[in-house]
Computed example of a mutant assay.
Amino acid sequence: MEENIKVGGMTYIVKVQEHFKSHDDERNLWGYCDYEQQIIYIRQSLSDQKKRQVLIHELTHAILHEVGYKEQDEELVSRFSIGLHQVLNDNPELLSV
């Protein structure tokens, strides 16, 4: 599955697939944002709810990158994206305003 999302004027492709490898990380990641290629990878085997949470996490990285934050605090990104996921999930009508 692929979908396009505009972030800071750039088009990111979201790819949901089981296997992907970041440039410098050997861990079994749930998601990865490739800023150079504008690709967000999400692991296929995750539950739908976890995929959405990981997408929001990787989108947070993409947004911060595109507005100029090249050095990012992973703990801050994780905490913020979990909070944003909860707000969006618990208030689905929020985006229909």
Rank of each mutant, 00 (worst) to 15 (best):
A62S: 15
N91M: 10
G68T: 08
S81Y: 01
L59P: 13
E93G: 13
I63H: 12
I56H: 05
E36C: 02
L64A: 09
H85D: 10
K51Y: 06
L64M: 15
Q49C: 08
V16L: 07
L29H: 14
Q38Y: 04
N28Y: 10
S81E: 06
F20T: 03
L46I: 11
E2I: 10
I82C: 09
F20R: 01
G31M: 13
L29M: 11
P92Q: 07
L55G: 14
Q17G: 05
Y12C: 14
Y32H: 04
I42P: 04
H19V: 15
L95H: 11
Q72S: 00
L95D: 05
R43H: 09
G9E: 06
E71V: 14
L95T: 00
L95E: 05
K21R: 13
L64E: 11
Q86G: 03
L59T: 05
W30E: 03
N28E: 12
H57V: 14
D90C: 07
R79A: 11
L94G: 12
M1D: 03
D25Y: 08
V16W: 04
I39G: 13
E66R: 10
L46Y: 10
I5Q: 06
K6C: 11
L76R: 05
P92L: 02
S81H: 04
S22E: 02
Q86I: 02
E3D: 13
V67W: 06
